[in-house]
Structures are given as structure tokens and as C-alpha cells.
Design a binder for these strands. Structure first.
Lengths: 241, 241
DNA sequence: CTCCATATGTGCGTTACCGCACATACCAGA
DNA sequence: TCTGGTATGTGCGGTAACGCACATATGGAG
């Protein structure tokens, strides 16, 4: 299973018309993305864009005092490095691998060239960017109004959607960094979910036991984001094998 | 002063090359934007895009329970309605006039056509969108980590940058809605700023007395956003008359 | 098997903000 | 001038999350 890699495991690449896909294919480079790897540093130049297939990447904003918050996640539904084609060559956010896996990368000049054709690739990337914007905006609202437990549920669901299994490897410490809350807060929330039988938590390994209940405990933010992704990028589901 | 309207009061329009500017000019329609006007409703179709000249528009996300939060502001530095050219024809956010004034609007099909030329207009709009994304992301972080007082300072500064005066008309109630906090919280924070001599507040009319101190009390978010706008859209300042 | 770094659980005082209630201040129109 | 609606100030109990300290559990390396 894991030894059969294909760019089509990334939904954006999979949604490309044959012409564009075959043009890009020889330039795509399979890369492993280990847990914790920093793909982009805040303010750094973007040398590649990434199309994750099995990895999940967090976009984090880190503040002067070291506190951080996740503003979006990118998995097999998307692309990492939108600021490249949006016009800035750098990004003010940090990109960290949140869940180890694989992805394909493309050299920055090649993507820019493809984008400048102003064809299907450009339109698809812009639609994805629009969906990503929605995710960021909803994160802002969520940070303002929702409890840690609700946000934990949202976060677990967003991660699950980008994985093929119902297990994820992630310590509470790391989740706390993503959500921008205390580790103890995550412990408490995760404990409640565990006692309620929704998840199993054991030293960095989470198994989801009852996804429907998780959705019930989550704030609306999860559904809003998911619905908007589905609306903007329906081909990802229609075409997906 | 107020009777002399020109599209060039909007920095994006002003930054356009002559060719593009003269092509768009006859299609631009001057519109008044009164306080509280809802330009876009969440989920609604976008009939026009707007280039504010003297008005300021808030992008709000409103939740099921009625609670809301501002995710970005758009003034004379930008354009309202980016989801039109990003690919979705609707927007999940609500756009409300936060500070009355004027702006120019352009019919949706005309903007789409201009965008599809894939020329300077498109590149400028995408760079602006990138800056807007930064603002949203920073708002998310700010909501997570900063106090009401810090956020009030940030909000005042962002508004000031989009006005030509040091006064703004805005009740504490409305500011509270924007920031997604209690009205009393704004009262308390504004009271502190007033006692410190940074602002004058009187029944919906704010006068900034000491802007440098306001910047000191603000969180870093203001500077981050401003710096990124300047980086991405330097022409707005170089060319601006 | 033992040890130890790492992960998780728990308690406690503090803080920021909430929701609510109500007092006060101000402007506009009758 | 009075009056009513709107804007602002203030107090109070409740709560969610914080920072910190420390106890406990666990899995892998030796």
C-alpha cells in the first residue's frame, strides 16, 4: 500500500485535465515528509510547492514571544506554497509536517510558469486558495468563540479527513502548539473525549472510536470549512478514484 | 474635498498601468456607502466588486448563535469581493460598511473578464489577496493570544490607516461586534486608553491623540500586517499622489 | 528487566473575559 | 425644557483558560 505512490493520491493533481497532468508529471518529485519537518520558515523563500499525498502539513503563525497558532492545515486535498503564485515569493507563516507521510514537490519556477499559462491549473489553484481562505477565516472565529474541547474535535476531524485511517500519531503537546493552548488544556479535553468513549489516547497515538459523536461535540467550524471545500472543489470527489 | 471624487483615491486602481486604468475607467460607478450597509451577505451572489475610496468595510463571519468576528478590513488600499475572481461566486463572509464613505464599483462580469486577461490587473489583485490572507491569519493568531486592549489598539490603527483623518465614528457596541467581544470589554479598554490620554471617546466619536503610544500598546499583529501590505504592494505608496 | 526520557494526569491560585444588572451621561426631538 | 432613546460606565458572580508544580504512567534502549 505504502509502496505504491502516485501523484493522483493528491486530489488537486488528480483533478487536473489529462493535458496538464501529463505535462506536469515528469517534473513532480516524490518526497518523504517526516514528522516535525519544517518545510517553510516564516519569511523564507519558497523553492518548491508541495502536493501532499499521505502527509499533513500545518500552517503556523509564530509570534515574537514564541506563542503560536495554527491557521490552516494542508493535506492530500491541497497544495502547500500558495504565496508563490499569489505574488509574494515568501510566506509569513511556518509550515510544519504534522503527520508524517509523502508528497510530491515541484520546483518554484516550474509552478510559476504553469500558473502563468492562465489555464485550468491556475483556476484550480485559485479555487483551492479560496477554500483555504475560508479555513483561515473560520479558524479566526473559532479561536475567538469556541472552547478547547470544541476546537480539539474540529482539529481531529480536519486531520481525519486528510488521512485514510482512523488513527493519528500526535502528542497532546503538539496538538496544544497547533491550537495555541496549554498542553494541560488538551489533556483535559482529550480525557473527557476518552471517558466518553469517542477516542482512545495513548502516548501519542489516537484512535477515533465514534466519529459521529465527535462531530456533534465539535463546533460548527468543522462543517463550515468542509462544506466550503466540497462546494469549491467538487471535482476532488467526483473524479477521485 | 469630499466633492472631488476620483477612482485614483483607491490605491489599487491608482496602481494600475495607464492602459488598464483607462480601459476600466468608463465602467467604474461611484457609489455612496453609508454606515452599516450590508454589501455582501454570507452565501450571497456577488453582483459587483467594490474599490473603496473613503469608506471602510469589515469582513465578518457570523456564527449560528449570532456571535460574530471580524476577519479583515478593506479600505482604500484594496478591493472587496475577491471570491469573485478566486473562483467561488459567493462568499461565506458578510461585508458591512464600518465607516461611511464612498467607493467605486464594477459589475461582476466585467471584473471577471478583466481578470481573465491574465495581465497586470490579475497580478495586482492576487498580490492584494495575498496581503488580505496575511491579515486574516494574523487576526486568527490575535484572537487566540492577545488581550482586548491590545486588539482595540490594533483595530484603531488599522482603521486609521484607511482614513485621512484622526477621527472615526464608531460606537463601542459596534467595535465589540467587530472584535467579537463584549461591549463592556471595549468600554473598559477604551476607558484605559482615554485616561492615558491616547484617545478621546465621546458617544461614537473617537479622536486619536497619541498615535505612537497606541502603537506601543498594540500587539505586534498591527505591524506584521502593515509590513506585509507594504512589502506586497509597495506601488500603492510610491505611486500614490 | 531495569532505567529513563517522554507523555499524560491532576491540583491550585490567578487572570481575563463572560453575562447580567443597573447607574449615569448625553443628544435629539416634542 | 422635558423626555426618551442611545451610549457609556461600573459592579458582581461565574467560568474557561492560564502558569506552575508535581505526580504518575509508559515504552524503548541498554
Amino acid at each position: 500500500m505504502h509502496d505504491q505512490h502516485s501523484p493522483k493520491q493528491n486530489h488537486l493533481l488528480d483533478a487536473l485535465p489529462v493535458t496538464e497532468y501529463t505535462r506536469l508529471l515528469p517534473m513532480l518529485e516524490l518526497v518523504e515528509m517526516p514528522l516535525g519537518e519544517v518545510l517553510y520558515e516564516s519569511g523564507g523563500q519558497l523553492k518548491h510547492v508541495y502536493f501532499p499525498t499521505s502527509a499533513i502539513i500545518s500552517l503556523l503563525y509564530v509570534m515574537e514571544n514564541g506563542a503560536s497558532a495554527e491557521i490552516a492545515v494542508v493535506g492530500n486535498e491541497g497544495i502547500l506554497g500558495i504565496s508563490l503564485f499569489m505574488g509574494g515569493d515568501t510566506t509569513p507563516s511556518r509550515a510544519v509536517t504534522q503527520s508524517a507521510g509523502f508528497g510530491y514537490r515541484l520546483k518554484a519556477p516550474l509552478l510559476k510558469e504553469e500558473f502563468s499559462r492562465a489555464g485550468p491549473v491556475m483556476r484550480l489553484l485559485l479555487r483551492y486558495t479560496q477554500a483555504l481562505i475560508t479555513q483561515m477565516a473560520q479558524t479566526a472565529v473559532c479561536n475567538r468563540h469556541h472552547t478547547v474541547e470544541q476546537q480539539l474535535c474540529r482539529w481531529l476531524l480536519l486531520s481525519l479527513d486528510r488521512l485514510s485511517s482512523n488513527k493519528l500519531s500526535m502528542t497532546q503537546e503538539l496538538i496544544a502548539n497547533m491550537l495555541g493552548v496549554r498542553r494541560e488544556g488538551v489533556t483535559e479535553a482529550a480525557g473527557k473525549l476518552q471517558r466518553a468513549g469517542l477516542i482512545d489516547y495513548s502516548r501519542g497515538h489516537i484512535t477515533i472510536r465514534d466519529r459521529p459523536s465527535l462531530e456533534k461535540r465539535s463546533c460548527e467550524c468543522y462543517t463550515v470549512v468542509k462544506t466550503e471545500f466540497d462546494r469549491l472543489l467538487p471535482s476532488l470527489h467526483v473524479i477521485a478514484s
